[in-house]
Amino acid sequence: MKWATRAGIHIDRAACAWLIRRFIDPDATFVCVADLAHVPDDATPFDMRGADLGHHHGDCSFETILRRYDLTDDPALQRIAEIIHEADLDDERFDAPEAPGLDVVLRGLSMIGDDEHTMTVTKPVFDGLYEYYRRASLLGREPA
């Protein structure tokens, strides 16, 4: 399936792309466009103003996708969602000290490469975070 998002991706879009490819559509391809009007007909837009998979009721797009695709039962994804929410919206709904650090890493990445580069680099980062919080939820404490 084809997916589309706004060009100049930051944390929410990078995390959504990872989530889509790993949990929803392993064959996902992504196009980054400037505007909702430029989204190809056969693509599902996310994290764009006016798209269904966007911000709703104070949630970031990552949280919206979790809800739309019934992924809310996974505690590791839930924890990642809290971090993305705080890095993206910074409204202190959650306690996520990881968020400011991750936010800076993503902002820095966007300064040295294009969107494809950011997605390529962040994929193993999110894989690692997922594994960390998966183990944490099994152990009931920090795994290392």
Partner: peptide, 17 residues
């Protein structure tokens, strides 16, 4: 900048909501 534009975009969407 990238951050302010994005925040403002989402607030605009929320206002319409």
């Amino acid at each position: 900048d990238a951050r302010t534009r994005e925040h403002i975009d989402w607030i605009a969407e929320e206002i319409e909501g």
